[in-house]
C-alpha cells in the first residue's frame, strides 16, 4: 500500500543535475515516510481484523496475520446486522448531504450576491455560531426533539443538520464571491431571474466547491457519534458509529468485531473522496484566492 518511491525521472524543464535529482529523491523519501505514518493505523487495523480472535490480543499489533482469516468479517455479518448499520448511516448521511448542498447553495448565494437589509448581521450571526461549543447544546437539542416527539426517529438525526451548517455556508459563500460578477450582470440584462442565474451560472460553475461540501458533510455525518447515541435507541435507526461504540466495554472490548467493522465503515468514505478528489482541490483553489 505504501506508494513506491520510484526514483523520479528527470521531470523538471531544466533537469539534469545530480543535485536536483538527489533533492527530488529526498522529497520522495520524506513524503513516503509521511504516507506511511498516515496509513500505518489503517494497516494495523486491517492486519488485526484478519487475525483469529484467539491471537488478536496475545500477538503484537504488527505481527502479520498469518494465516489470515475471514472469520471476523463473517461474524460481523452473521452475528450483527452490519448491512443494516451501513444502510441507516448512508440514508442519514446521504439525506443530510443532499439537503446541505441545496440549502447551502441558496443561502450562500444570497449572502454572496444579493444586497438585502439584515445581510451583514445575519451572516455574522451564522459565523458566530461556528464558535459555540456544541457539547452542551446536545441537552437543549434533545429537549427540543423530545418536545417534538421525534426522539428515536430518522428525523431527529437529520433535521438539525440538513439545512446547512455555518461552516458550509461560509465555505460556499467565499467561493461564490470569486465567480466574476460580469457573467451574472450579463444574464440579468438578458432578463434572467435569480433562479435561472443559480441554475445556469452559479451551480455549473460551482461543481468543485459543491463536491467539497458534499465530501466534508458526508464524512462528518458518517463519523458523528454523540448525537445519534443520544437521539436513537432502536434497531431501525441505529448508525454505524453507535454500533461500534457499543462494542467497547469498560475494561474489555470486542476488538475482533470492532476492528473489521471500523475497516468496513471507512470504505464508503474513501470511495466518496476518490470520486470527488480532483474537484476538491480545484474548488478550494478558487475559494480563498481571487
Amino acid at each position: 500500500m505504501t506508494p513506491r518511491a520510484k526514483t523520479p525521472r528527470n521531470s523538471g524543464q531544466r533537469g539534469g543535475h545530480v543535485l536536483r535529482r538527489m533533492r527530488a529523491s529526498t522529497v520522495y523519501l520524506l513524503l513516503s515516510i509521511g504516507a506511511l505514518v498516515s496509513i500505518a493505523p489503517y494497516l494495523m487495523t486491517l492486519n488485526a481484523a484478519f487475525k483469529p480472535q484467539s491471537t488478536l490480543l496475545s500477538t503484537q499489533a504488527w505481527t502479520p496475520a498469518v494465516p489470515a482469516t475471514w472469520s471476523n468479517f463473517t461474524a460481523l455479518w452473521s452475528q450483527y446486522d452490519m448491512s443494516g448499520f451501513i444502510v441507516h448511516t448512508a440514508v442519514v448521511a446521504g439525506t443530510i448531504t443532499l439537503g446541505q448542498l441545496v440549502f447551502t447553495t441558496f443561502a450562500a448565494y444570497a449572502f454572496a450576491r444579493l444586497d438585502f437589509p439584515g445581510r451583514e448581521p445575519l451572516f455574522w450571526g451564522f459565523i458566530a455560531m461556528m464558535m459555540v461549543p456544541q457539547i452542551v447544546t446536545l441537552i437543549p437539542l434533545f429537549l427540543i426533539m423530545s418536545h417534538l416527539n421525534l426522539i428515536d426517529t430518522y428525523r431527529a438525526l437529520i433535521l438539525p443538520y440538513v439545512f446547512g451548517t455555518p461552516y458550509g455556508i461560509f465555505l460556499v459563500r467565499q467561493y461564490f464571491q470569486t465567480i466574476p460578477a460580469d457573467l451574472e450582470a450579463a444574464a440579468r440584462i438578458d432578463g434572467a431571474g435569480t433562479w435561472t442565474i443559480l441554475r445556469r451560472i452559479m451551480i455549473p460553475l460551482s461543481k468543485p466547491i459543491l463536491a467539497t461540501l458534499a465530501t466534508i458533510t458526508f464524512v462528518n455525518t458518517w463519523n458523528s457519534l454523540l448525537w445519534p447515541l443520544m437521539a436513537t435507541s432502536s434497531e431501525r435507526d441505529e448508525v454505524v458509529t453507535v454500533g461500534i461504540a457499543a462494542l467497547q466495554g469498560q475494561f474489555a472490548s470486542e476488538l475482533h468485531i470492532l476492528l473489521p467493522a471500523a475497516a468496513v465503515a471507512l470504505l464508503p468514505l474513501v470511495a466518496i473522496f476518490l470520486l470527488f478528489q480532483r474537484h476538491i482541490v480545484r474548488s478550494i483553489a478558487l475559494t480563498g484566492l481571487k
Partner: peptide
C-alpha cells in the same frame, strides 16, 4: 430582498431552530 429571504429561509429556519434556540437555552 424577498428573493434573498426566500433563499436563506430554509437555512435560517434550521439555524434558528437547531442552533440558536439550543444556544439560548444554554
Amino acid at each position: 430582498t424577498l428573493e434573498a429571504y426566500l433563499l436563506i429561509a430554509p437555512s435560517l429556519f434550521g439555524f434558528v431552530a437547531f442552533l440558536v434556540a439550543p444556544v439560548v437555552i444554554v
